[in-house]
């Protein structure tokens, strides 16, 4: 894959690649002949970065469909955790904690630092809080639960407001991530003030064309159907 010199662009492209492969595994398209030539695999360091960015989402096909995660995939996630270790600052440590939990379940025990308190809409309003929750949308998966999920259960209205705001701003990426939380709430029995099917249809029609957003929407559709 012809990558640019900047690690930001290289890692972003690798994340897209890994998201595309995960999406294929989730939709059952893995191994099927793609309509256009599939991009070549990224360089090893970039691929590990991409897998590290996806975090718990690498396990989404297994958690949503019951198909086991291939051992070599789990090994790559563990290697990504070793090469890109978790540090103790920032909201991303919640993602690291979820990845560590899933890796430990898969037989690759790794430790993650204790995250800061989960974001609360009472601190700086539902707008900012919903963006923080969008950054943690990869935690919206079956069998994962914790303080962040508890916050989502406590504030379904703030999540719905955030999703509606993101749709109005035409911020497709944030909308897809917040709709995923709404779908998780639906699956866990928390009533939401927004109807999911029209939202999912709208976002599918106006997609931003990225594999990451497509993965978020597909996970949301699975959660909503369950």
């Amino acid at each position: 894959m012809p990558f640019a010199e900047s690690p930001q662009r290289e890692f972003a492209a690798a994340t897209e690649w890994a998201a595309g492969r995960t999406l294929d595994a989730l939709t059952g398209a893995e191994g099927a002949a793609p309509p256009t030539p599939a991009p070549a695999a990224p360089e090893p360091q970039a691929l590990l970065a991409g897998v590290r960015v996806l975090g718990p989402d690498v396990f989404a096909p297994a958690l949503l469909t019951g198909a086991p995660t291939p051992p070599e995939t789990t090994e790559i996630v563990a290697e990504a955790f070793r090469v890109f270790p978790s540090d103790e600052s920032g909201i991303h440590t919640w993602r690291d904690r979820a990845t560590a939990e899933l890796l430990t379940r898969a037989g690759y025990p790794v430790s993650a630092p204790t995250p800061p308190p989960p974001p609360d809409p009472g601190e700086d309003g539902w707008q900012h809080w919903s963006v923080r929750m969008a950054q943690l949308s990869c935690l919206a998966l079956p069998t994962l639960d914790g303080p962040v999920h508890q916050r989502a259960r406590e504030h379904p209205l703030a999540l719905a407001r955030g999703a509606a705001r993101a749709v109005l701003r035409r911020d497709h990426r944030t909308s897809a991530r917040l709709v995923r939380w709404l779908a998780w709430l639906h699956r866990t029995g928390t009533p939401s003030t927004l109807e999911l099917p029209p939202l999912l249809r709208q976002l599918a029609l106006t997609g931003d064309g990225t594999a990451r957003s497509a993965l978020d929407l597909t996970v949301a559709a699975h959660l909503a159907a369950g």
């Binding site: 690690p7 930001q8 890692f11 972003a12 994340t15 890994a18 492969r21 995960t22 294929d24 595994a25 893995e30 695999a41 090893p44 360091q45 691929l47 590990l48 970065a49 897998v51 590290r52 960015v53 975090g55 690498v58 096909p61 995660t69 291939p70 070599e72 995939t73 790559i76 290697e79 070793r82 090469v83 890109f84 270790p85 540090d87 920032g90 909201i91 991303h92 993602r95 963006v131 969008a134 950054q135 993101a166 701003r169 911020d171 990426r173 944030t174």
Partner: peptide
């Protein structure tokens, strides 16, 4: 699903770690 990978040789540098963190926490 991600099987065709050769494991990376070195531990990530600080800029690489920063890039990964930034990609994890995409802002609106």
């Amino acid at each position: 699903m991600l099987a065709q990978t050769v494991l990376a040789p070195h531990r990530a540098t600080a800029p690489e770690l920063g890039t990964v963190k930034a990609l994890m926490t995409e802002d609106e």
